[in-house]
Design a binder for these strands. Sequence first.
DNA 1: CGTAAATTTGATACGTTTCAACCCTCGTGG
DNA 2: CCACGAGGGTTGAAACGTATCAAATTTACG
Lengths: 247, 247
Amino acid sequence: MSTTTLPTPPQAPAAAAPAGGSLTEMLQMLRQTLPMQRRLVHAGDVVVQSGQRFEWLHVLNSGMFKLVALTADGRERISGLYFKGDWLGFDGIASGHHTCDAVAMDTGELWSVRYDVLLDAATSCPALVAALHAAMSREITRDRESMMALCTLPADARVAEFLRQWTQALEHRGQRTDQLRMSMTRAEIGNHLGLTLETVSRVLSRLERAAIIRFGERSRRELHIAEPRALARFVEASLARTAPALQ
Amino acid sequence: MSTTTLPTPPQAPAAAAPAGGSLTEMLQMLRQTLPMQRRLVHAGDVVVQSGQRFEWLHVLNSGMFKLVALTADGRERISGLYFKGDWLGFDGIASGHHTCDAVAMDTGELWSVRYDVLLDAATSCPALVAALHAAMSREITRDRESMMALCTLPADARVAEFLRQWTQALEHRGQRTDQLRMSMTRAEIGNHLGLTLETVSRVLSRLERAAIIRFGERSRRELHIAEPRALARFVEASLARTAPALQ
DNA sequence: CGTAAATTTGATACGTTTCAACCCTCGTGG
DNA sequence: CCACGAGGGTTGAAACGTATCAAATTTACG
């Protein structure tokens, strides 16, 4: 590596400060500085549609959304899950049109702002730019992390890692992580993970037998997770078993 | 191309206009409005390092880079390839630190600008914001598209789709698409695609037998692609064969 | 309640990995 | 000049994991 570090000026730039602050701070800041349209959504509501002209950005105040992408050959894939504080609509900025559907998975509240309005407001409020860029940056790193896990891991680890990322997302938002209400069917989970619904079902059963998850008494859509870290350990164990492969 | 029309009347938002204009226009605009540090890089140079404090954004003026991510358990994955006009470093904005290595794959020229300097300049130049947002948005959609292909497809289609995306990237940059100099080893390609190097090798041989690609006389690192669209057709054919599965 | 959808579980088929052998090219040094 | 070794690449046979197909069972919902 002939390239040494870049010429770094001595004074510490503000650029390196983690942008955006806490989640609730960001939401409060947005509400105070932007004319947001707030509305309630219900499971199944499509709030962004593929092909639609890009005009709005959306911020989730509550609820959960899935992003559904359509491949060239007509199959559709769930490319991500979104929670409180996440933004929707970034995909439209570059081309002027959206490339995915965003679908509500339960009732929630959505804040929407026109992109041009946001840009105007941003010129007089640097915190707004910081929040926007932080959100886009997070989206990039999050997608990347998700891809790493979902593309590489064997089925066991893939499902476990999916649950781990989910609980982690809840944890970051201060919500309880010892139980999950899965609003997705096994087929949807499989679709998202690149597995069949049967494999997902089998892995969940295996995770239950390993006492890492427990199903709700009422429904196997509810998961109890006594110790979220057990999921991470399970993923590592799967890798240690199967992957001497490096590089 | 309406790159400079940002503050707009409410009815017809410029937000929907494809931002950034052409690639050469964007590069020219950047050079004129920003104090960029230009430098040459060579194969193997690490221009961004994981863990490094975020301070700079980089724009590729020429050459090709790979982004290398490290998983929690120490494996490393090539999470993307970058070409002329692409930006590097967005992953650092949110957290203040980079999460990937960016490594040059051949000689090229890199333009670097401090993020805080860019933000300052952006307040007086809307086109700069537009270009930045467009680049981030493109990164999001590109990663997503790449994930769709690389996670879902069977090995044959995965390699073919990888080549297709590569030639498409070259096409968008006005470079010749009938031949590829693969600066990656089979192992690196496999690493990126989630396949073993043997499988990559087999698929490439199969693609040659199917007369979709031809190897260079000198080296099997050079590919001739008579008709890039044949790659797309091959991907579709693979899917038609294996995937009655929908939903 | 009754029916359709969702889920679980098993047996088998298929594709990819693994392991192994061999080839080729290139640079080095005897 | 040729022998040699290392790294990259190709190809084959067997092992493994997941998909597929096919039930049986449970759950959701009008």
